[in-house]
């Protein structure tokens, strides 16, 4: 139902509204601004609120306040803006607030540029803020997934009372593809812990401070237990992995390029496959470890200095060579470029 040629960034907003999100707090930044623009247009039409905050810091804190009321709320930004939000994200994780944060990554460090990079992997997957916390991180590679994974992000955030992230790059945000929009979510779960501006509120507290070390350790242990449960939500896609000697690993726009690489080399009869993590945390470590039993090499391709590759190496645990190819500065390698690299470096 409802197929539409649409930008990934816009698909996020429509998906969010279909998921029952009615609050958007954001600050303009390229290449994520279409998300705020679409939210500004559509939110008022569905009884929602769009507010352009005075800063990235303010927007994440508005989200903190709004999510305390148990509704579905989101923000969107791009790399430098996400850096600014990190303190607030840590607060949301500590206070266990289910929020959705979209990061349309751009080039860094510093102001960098507005071209697609994937160098926010560490600051989202490893937690760019302070403290012992984890974010649920989903990495779409199509406009369809921008919608679907946004809806899933709201569901998982509510299910586990944890912030969830859509980590996409500038290309996936700017690209138009057909999206089939699913039916709207009919019922958003009731949240007993949330404030409702009623007499029961006196029993509730949205808070991340625990002065007593014993109490704070207990809180942290509780969070870690929760993270173990979230590990079951791992999502990934395998493409021709069954008989592969070489398995490529990449996410976002890179995984699309790698798909072409596999298609081209399979046509030439090479035993090559692709593993695409859809959830970057939880990470498909188990599946990668399984593959390590039977394949010969891994090749990780990233638009960063090598961040995802660390997690792959942890999963492979030295059992097989993990090769690495990367571009930075906003350059997306072509399939031919990667094929040339494979031919040069991977010995059969």
């Amino acid at each position: 139902m409802g197929k539409q040629l649409i930008k990934g960034n816009e698909a996020i907003v429509k998906g969010a509204i279909l998921a029952g999100c009615r609050y958007f707090f954001g600050y303009p930044i390229t290449p994520a601004s279409e998300i705020a623009e679409a939210a500004a247009f559509y939110m008022p039409l569905v009884g929602g609120t769009f507010l352009q905050a005075e800063s990235e810091v303010a927007s994440i804190n508005m989200l903190y306040g709004a999510a305390s009321g148990g509704i579905r709320a989101m923000t969107a930004s791009s790399s430098p803006g996400i850096s600014l939000k990190q303190e607030g994200i840590s607060y949301c994780a500590g206070s266990e607030l289910p929020i959705v944060i979209v990061d349309i990554m751009r080039g860094g460090p510093g102001l960098g540029n507005i071209a697609p990079e994937q160098s926010d992997y560490n600051q989202m997957v490893k937690g760019g803020g302070h403290g012992n916390y984890k974010l649920i991180v989903l990495a779409p590679n199509s406009a369809q997934e921008m919608c679907d994974l946004t809806m899933l992000a709201f569901e998982l955030a509510d299910k586990y009372r944890n912030p969830a992230v859509i980590l996409a790059d500038g290309f996936i945000g700017q690209m138009m593809e057909p999206v089939e929009f699913p039916k709207a979510v009919e019922k958003i779960p009731e949240k007993e812990w949330a404030l409702h501006a009623d007499a029961d509120d006196e029993k509730k507290l949205i808070c991340s401070i625990q002065l007593d070390p014993d109490v704070l350790e207990k809180h942290n242990l509780k969070l870690q237990e929760k993270y173990k449960k979230i590990a079951a939500e791992v999502r990934f896609e395998e493409y021709y992995c069954d008989d592969a000697d070489l398995v490529l690993i990449g996410f976002g726009v890179v995984s699309r390029v790698l798909l072409s690489v596999v298609d081209i080399l399979r046509e030439k009869g090479q035993r090559i496959g692709l593993l695409r993590p859809i959830s970057l945390w939880p990470f498909p470590s188990f599946q990668i470890a399984q593959l390590a039993q039977k394949i010969k090499h891994f090749l990780v391709v990233e638009l960063s200095n090598g961040q995802l590759v660390d997690d792959v190496k942890l999963a492979v645990n030295g059992k097989k060579p993990v090769l690495f190819y990367n571009r930075m500065g906003g350059i997306v390698p072509s399939p031919e470029e990667i094929i040339a690299h494979i031919e040069k470096t991977v010995k059969a």
Binding site: Y91, E202, L205, I206, C207
Partner: peptide
């Protein structure tokens, strides 16, 4: 004795 939010 109200609804409470501790802020950054």
């Amino acid at each position: 004795r109200v609804g409470n939010i501790q802020c950054s």
